[in-house]
Design a protein around this nucleic acid. Structure first.
Length: 276
DNA sequence: ACAATATCCTGCGAGC
DNA sequence: TGCTCGCAGGATATTG
């Protein structure tokens, strides 16, 4: 599932191919993929816009277009953006395809939960209002002990869910929250308010460390994620707990467990990460 | 404001 | 081989 390191990789690797390309055509295969505006308007307004730059905000990828428009993608669980310099029609589950003078960009999304949005930069659609309410990203200097403590100290919810909250740890998803909690030796079910200062400090450090390495390794290709050229990332080689139920903990040889927290899988070592 | 739960969506792997 | 069943999970809506 694409989280911050995956979307960052996609941004970095698409950039050299997309900058200054003009969108001369669009092939819409499934209307559901368009989050805003209505498909008809989307197709009309996108034509002849030029890609000037690419940004990332949390898990959102934002193409800065000419005439002050943004083309924003969210890949959700299984979305992929594949760039092809030739014009071959080989990307499976392509829901929308952008055509340039040379090359194409395919938005593939088997589960159809991902979305693409087109809007003037100063007219953010309601369906994207969350873009204005994102918290700090782990790699920002402002993401420090004080910041995280303020966000979680009065929260009765478990720390795993708090880490997945984009208003708290923007860009973090299921993989990196589990890995960070393991690194910091914190049980995923611990209440936010129960964390000691030292634990919050460790968690901040671990999040920064893991996200940084994951970006260097070009993301985690464990389920659907691929880079824009179709290659895999390599952080899956460095996972310590995620999707390792029943395997041995590298720190204490304990048996890694999987539990459900708010209906999502959470992997941890019961011996290193105590609940009390 | 917070917390817990339901919903979206379809491919895929497990089990028989 | 072919069928059914339930899982995967980010963000948002809904309910309490």
């Amino acid at each position: 599932m694409p989280e911050l390191p995956e979307v960052e990789t996609i941004k970095n690797e698409l950039k050299p191919f997309l900058i200054n390309k003009r969108i001369i055509g669009v092939k819409l295969e499934n209307k559901k993929i368009i989050g805003y505006p209505k498909p008809k308007d989307f197709l009309k307004k996108i034509i002849n816009k030029k890609i000037l730059n690419i940004d990332r905000k949390g898990k959102y990828l934002i193409l800065k277009l000419s005439e002050n428009y943004n083309l924003t993608f969210h890949l959700r669980l299984s979305g992929r953006l594949i760039y092809d310099e030739n014009l071959e029609d080989k990307v499976k589950y392509t829901r929308i395809k952008f055509l340039f003078n040379k090359g194409t960009l395919s938005f593939s999304e088997p589960r159809l939960l991902g979305r693409v949005y087109l809007y003037p930069v100063d007219e953010l659609p309601k369906s994207l209002s969350s873009l204005n309410n994102l918290g700090k990203e782990p790699l920002m200097p402002e993401f420090n002990f004080q910041y995280l403590k303020t966000k979680i100290k009065n929260r009765h919810t478990n720390i795993k869910s708090l880490l997945l909250d984009q208003k708290i740890a923007c860009g973090v998803g299921n993989i990196y929250s589990d890995e960070a909690l393991f690194c910091a030796k914190i049980h995923p079910k611990r209440k936010g308010s129960s964390l000691k200062d030292e634990e919050i400090k460790r968690l901040v450090k671990c999040l920064k460390k893991i996200i940084k390495i994951a970006i260097n390794k070009k993301g985690t290709s464990i389920s659907d994620y691929l880079r824009p050229d179709g290659k895999v990332g390599s952080f899956q080689k460095y996972l310590k707990v995620f999707r390792k139920e029943g395997e041995r903990c590298i720190r204490c040889n304990g048996k890694i467990r999987r539990i459900k927290i708010n209906n999502r899988s959470s992997y941890f070592c019961p011996n290193c990460q105590k609940e009390v």
